[in-house]
Design a binder for these strands. Sequence first.
DNA 1: GGCTCTTTTCGTCACACTGACGCGAATAAA
DNA 2: TTTATTCGCGTCAGTGTGACGAAAAGAGCC
Lengths: 251, 251
Amino acid sequence: MADDIKDWRIPMVAVAVDLTVLTVRAELLQILMVERGIQPFRGMLALPGGFLESRREDLDAAVARELAEETGLSAEQLHLEQLRTYGAPDRDPRGRVITVCYLALMPNLPLPRAGGDARAARFVPVEHVLGRGAAIAFDHRTIVADAVERARGKLEYTSLGAAFCPPEFTIGELRRVYEIVWGHPLDPRNFHRKITGVPGFLVPTGERTSRDGGRPAALYRRGPAALMHPPILRPANPVPQNVDRRRSRVS
Amino acid sequence: MADDIKDWRIPMVAVAVDLTVLTVRAELLQILMVERGIQPFRGMLALPGGFLESRREDLDAAVARELAEETGLSAEQLHLEQLRTYGAPDRDPRGRVITVCYLALMPNLPLPRAGGDARAARFVPVEHVLGRGAAIAFDHRTIVADAVERARGKLEYTSLGAAFCPPEFTIGELRRVYEIVWGHPLDPRNFHRKITGVPGFLVPTGERTSRDGGRPAALYRRGPAALMHPPILRPANPVPQNVDRRRSRVS
DNA sequence: GGCTCTTTTCGTCACACTGACGCGAATAAA
DNA sequence: TTTATTCGCGTCAGTGTGACGAAAAGAGCC
């Protein structure tokens, strides 16, 4: 037998990695997108990503490299997990490209490389990407939809909501994350009761802040717990609700 | 720019699809494996799978083809979903191979092609594959572990437990599936209450059977519901329990 | 038939969790 | 000082849960 795949009659395909970097800013769930400077889909929005650099590069390493190129952040600084692989034969008009997609969640940080790179990566509301009107390259609209659905589900039974928050945050800020990601208002008092009842989720810092207005709130850090027991489930009715800051009561 | 990926300086890699086909038979959770007839890892157990046949073959089509080759079943006959992609650079000693893995669940059916094919695909208890002693090719032990964990989790909040059952089944048979997959005894009365309380999960056929001994049980078919509300959660303590048929009470 | 053994199926009960909501406390802005 | 806002605590009814009792309905054995 052959000692190397290259000697075989096996179809070789190009493998890309794409990133869906989600964040919450300006009261909206947003996703990092780049405007394509070359054909195909020139001028359209696409996910940041790229091909493997060499035949020896690990998938995770390729993702970490792309992440650093687009955001200046290292993979250890935020939550990163494999989302899914997309491999329809006609998904790239240039030829057969299979893309392994990753999901990243990050707090509302400035992008260090924004503007420095030729490719202008910026955050776009997911609402806009998923809407009819937007021009999205490749099958990236589908990928974004899958990523958002994954993130929404993960908030239910993991502590990943805190991945959208700065290192120290209040329960109210965490609740805003949930409301914005789920697109549904939550009762502040019940959320407070439930989130403080999960062992190992929140570690009080002893500090207080009144940056959100109103009575000063206690500041917390992320605890060691990765899974939430019991989970905080989404309200049953996923109506695209108006998640306004004031009057969060459904009228 | 080039019109085709092949004209670029992009590393091309071999893409494989692998199958983790789970079933419950002989009171054990088992997985379909093949014994490798060629190097590397000759004689060791590996997941059924193979490379893309052409540069135009869809991933899902490749999986369906492999499934038919190994089991004689078509993709419509059982539950099939993408599990994860494994792409460590050194996972295949022959060269760079990325494998897109799929999870399939099937009832306890005879394998039509078993024996007909040169490669002898057979079911092996997952316990054996995950154990220290077994000789498993590539990173397939890790893949099996991920597949089992995915299946265990899916039983909680989807109706996939019925995918392990024949078209008509009793609640007791479904409960045995849960007990064997989770490795934990369940209270028959509580399970009965919960499973019958999920709207759209079970459709009574009106028939009864006493094939399991004891009082005749009603036969059901799978209902239209895909998700279970409320979910049936695994017992908190995932101790590898003795799931004997008799005396399922923890002593 | 009578007895035992098995499994199904229907209830019961205490406990935990949930959503809906009241209310006082503590701050900033007017 | 008044008003608006948010925080954090508490209440209450409804619901799901685990643990368990008990009757029903068959099979096998004497």
